[in-house]
Design a protein around this nucleic acid. Sequence first.
DNA 1: ACAGTAACCTGTTTGC
DNA 2: TGCAAACAGGTTACTG
Length: 272
Amino acid sequence: MPELPEVETTRRGVAPYLEGQAVIGLIVREPRLRWSVPDDLAGHLCGQVIRAVERRAKFLLFRTDRGTLIIHLGMSGSLRIIVGDIPVRKHDHIDMLFEKHRLRYHDPRRFGGWLWWSGDPMNHPRLSGLGPEPLAPGFSGDYLNQAARGRTVAVKNFIMDGRIVVGIGNIYANEALFRAGIHPQCPAGAITVADYRILAEAIRNVLTDAIERGGTTLRDFVNEAGRPGYFQQSLCVYDREGKPCRRCKTAIVRLRVGQRASFCCPRCQPCF
DNA sequence: ACAGTAACCTGTTTGC
DNA sequence: TGCAAACAGGTTACTG
């Protein structure tokens, strides 16, 4: 679930409750996440003030004076602000305690992670090799075109590769390619620079639109208040097999690209 | 370096 | 209705 817009929605939601607040406790009920929660995480965090809540790719960064808590939501993780006495549900794996509330981590599939890093988080092995942020300067059609030279991989897989550009998962890859009028199976190296400029803009626009609508909730994504996003109402192709294209009414087609379900309009996204 | 596959784990949907 | 298989938003370790 959580791609860049959902992680950013979570960041914006929790930041006001955490920044400037001291951690007074940590309850780890289930440490077996994608990467095991470090044994000494409570020792690192307790007493520390969260100075800033940032995002890099799909990672959330909680900065303190002594290091950074790095959280990844995986495919089914969510963070909620809990005020008062709300009973722990199944899969509520971690609570981070503050004076007046707590941050509760829920993750049925346990593909997420809570990591600690004492140095510059950008040097963490999981972050150091990442490509540019799609919403920051430095990401452009010219950059994509350069990175795609000689690549035979399908363009959909190419833009989902975090070494090329971060934050784009299956939903937004499909949606961005539709907006750009590019077929998902087109080889990355066969796309013109003009089309890459259109694609880069489509990526920025779809991510920005999704953030404005609080992300996409297909099953279980919820924000810090436990409420869903509503960008799913704006999806043009994802999970719309057989339904009419919002632009030309042609039936949306489902195919498999690199083991992932993919959706496109055969008329608006012609084969290369 | 690149491309493709399997794996991590649980819940829900689909098909027989 | 019941059960098993297939599938799901992400990342990474492995293969050739």
